[in-house]
Amino acid sequence: MSRVFKHRTAAMNPAQTLLTPHPMGCPLSAPFDSEKQKDVLKVGLGLLESATSGGTIVEYQKSYRTGPFES
C-alpha cells in the first residue's frame, strides 16, 4: 500500500504490510510499469515467508518512476 497511509495502517495492526513510496491510487507503480508492479508483488509476497511475527511493516525502497513504459 502507499506510504500515504502509514500511520493508519500501523494502527490497524495488519498481518504483514509493504508500504510503497508511490502516490495514492497507484500503490504498485505508475501505469504500465510492469517490471515495478511485479517486483512490488514479489517483495510483498516474500513477507509472507520471511516475517516472523504479525504486524510487520516494511518500506519498499525503490523510488516511484514515471516512464514512459510500453502499454
Binding site: G25, C26, P27, L28, S29, A30, P31, F32, D33, S34, Q37, K38, L41, S71
Partner: peptide, 14 residues
C-alpha cells in the same frame, strides 16, 4: 491511473 492500467492497483496480469 487504474483506468489506464488496472495493474497499478488491481494486478491481475502480474
Amino acid at each position: 491511473v487504474v483506468a489506464a492500467d488496472r495493474n497499478s492497483c488491481l494486478p491481475i496480469d502480474r
